[in-house]
Design a protein around this nucleic acid. Structure first.
Lengths: 219, 219, 219, 219
DNA sequence: TATGAATGAGTCTTCATTCAT
DNA sequence: GATGAATGAAGACTCATTCAT
């Protein structure tokens, strides 16, 4: 699963061999993401992107107003992809906990299979710009992604029992737990990790059970 | 709790008003850390550090052979500090789980009280340099920090019961869980987090219980 | 005779007032050569070159990948020019020795009329980089220049008599003799040299006769 | 034959182990010369010299007013050494030409055995400073060295016959011939030189015969 | 005699961006 | 759409030198 987007939706007529509006744009995004994966967000320059795409440096500015705009778009798209992946999940019948583990696994797999996208989405140590908080936060793809986790928590409890802890907090714990594993696996590939499959499964069960049985936790 | 070390407390002779050997060095490290917290590792230049300290750019090179050496020292120091914080923990009598929560809380508090240090230690999206793996990895402070978590898992089980899951994997899950929360709280201060105290407590209980009762998890 | 090449004469379209593709490039090379003549290879910086050309420092890098690339191009061009000069020589009828003197005079005149080029070609005290020896050395312009001297020695003997000494060694002596005079005249303009014309003529006759009559030398 | 100087003449009392006035000075000169041989005149910094000697950078300025002063002293000393070498020559009985060849050989051997000194003396592409011509040029060691060659020419002709060419010009030709070979052998060690012994001998015979028989040359 | 500290000027090079074409 | 040319600002780093100690 690579991070190429709905290039199908834009246009079809193969008039020009190259360029063709949206395609170039996609190409730029794809190369930028690839390079970011290789060298980190700050390590990628417009020069490098342009060269990788095969266009001149200023030509980038025909598609994006600035370098940051490229990164930002990749950022947003990554969340869209994550949401898509989560939404495509269809649980296999079984115990709620197993279903939850399967669901969380989608998150983990997304991160591990799209490390570049995940990096761009969650791991850029940006200038921590005090960006004016968005008017409608839920509109931002980032929030949509978190919504899924919130729903997951609700679902778990609908099927499993009442909870005591704040469900919002529980969802945030879930997110933190997932993010911790994914980000460390991506960022520290040389760490002497335990066998990956067992590690992930152990982690997910730990998290899911924690959410499911939070009544005991708060006790 | 700032990232200054005892070595500053040693120098005695107040010969020079400025500089005084190690002081300037500490000052450089402190300002560098502060700036990194503000702008990210890659966003800080030697120029900025020098200006912040109040010395000329070349003067930095009297104390450090390169910019990376500064970052590396901050990196190592951060781990040392973390280990120190963990080692200073003295449990209050009580249930093992509560003690564990208290212990993990040290990790979280360290990260939240030293966000810059934590950033430098765990959140730099380095070029992922394939640095030749160190001869004795356990010597690196980074590993020493993880050792504490490994011991924590062992302790939990000594007091609480046998486990089924790989204790190494469990320790890694613990780390991932802690890191996820700390790194997100640091990196996304604008996120609509739940009330912090409750959030942290919920998270730590979730993790500690998960480790303590992993026998059920693997069941 | 300046060190500009025919490639400048090709570009035709006077689209841009400045730059115009190759022209800027030639300008850079010309100014660099001039400055090197003034201050030595190591004494010239990209700043100075850029200023002399009237462009910004970074603009140099649109034409050359590095400072060394400029020097290298000047180096190679100097040899090309020397070879061209030697190849354009057409002997006036006369005694072989006189013809040889005329020919060697071309070498000397080239050096004295293009002191900067000669400096770059033969007198740069490089880091003596152990540059990996080129695969086909004869391809390098430097070798082509020496080939001309080798041929000169052969020609002298074809017309003049058999020799005993190694003709390769003789050619090298010739080169050394020529280079000694040219390089000293260039490098030590303040030395109380004898009248230049007489000096050169005496030197060239000495060398040519030495090559022509080497049979006696070895005797 | 290395380029250490009359350190004997300065002081003898071995009071201080190190330093002792002149010794440090000699050490500095020696290391500077060595480094220049390795990296070229412009490639050597005061930092490197100081480090090689084992003193601090500013300490150099206790012995020399500037970096250039070090180079200049090395320059002058090299000439002194060359003159010494030439003056120590004692001809073995034999033909004048053979004696001349032996004498010129001293020059060549000096250069090849002291390439660093020779470099500093004759091959630095200095800023070609328009140094105000010295009041009494013959006082400068450089001139003294050339005097020896002038005498050599005179001696050759005293023993061998009258000459037509200007003896001063002849001496300069001799110098140029010698310098050309030595400087090229030093500067281009990778050139495919003929067997060195034969090359040198051929060259010297060529030069000596040229001077001896210049009457024919001018004919 | 020696030096630790410091620096202004300078090194080469890369950056994101603009503009006329 | 696209680009060749250009640039101000900044990047890390080295230089020879000074000065108070």
């Amino acid at each position: 699963m690579s991070i190429e987007f709905s290039r199908t939706s834009v246009s079809r007529s193969p008039r020009k061999r190259k360029g063709q509006g949206g395609e170039r744009r996609e190409e730029i995004l794809a190369e930028a993401l690839r390079l970011i994966g290789e060298r980190g967000v700050q390590g990628v320059s417009t020069r490098q992107i342009a060269e990788a795409v095969g266009i001149s440096q200023p030509s980038l500015y025909a598609y994006f107003p600035s370098r940051d705009a490229i990164v930002e778009e990749l950022h947003d798209r990554a969340f869209v992809l994550l949401v898509q992946a989560l939404d495509q999940f269809r649980p296999t019948p079984g115990k709620p906990l197993e279903q939850a583990v399967e669901y969380l696994r989608v998150y983990v797999d997304f991160g591990l299979q799209n490390p570049d996208a995940y990096r761009v989405a969650f791991m850029i140590e940006g200038a921590a710009k005090p960006k004016p908080p968005v008017a409608d936060p839920s509109a931002k793809p980032a929030m949509q992604a978190f919504d899924r986790l919130r729903e997951a928590v609700r679902t778990l409890h609908l099927n499993g029992g009442a909870y005591k802890a704040d469900p919002e907090a529980l969802a945030q714990c879930l997110w933190a737990g997932l993010h911790g594993l994914v980000s460390l696996l991506i960022a520290r590939p040389n760490f002497p990790w335990a066998e990956r499959e067992a590690l992930i499964r152990t982690h997910l069960i730990l998290l899911a059970r924690g959410v499911l049985n939070d009544d005991q936790a708060a006790a």
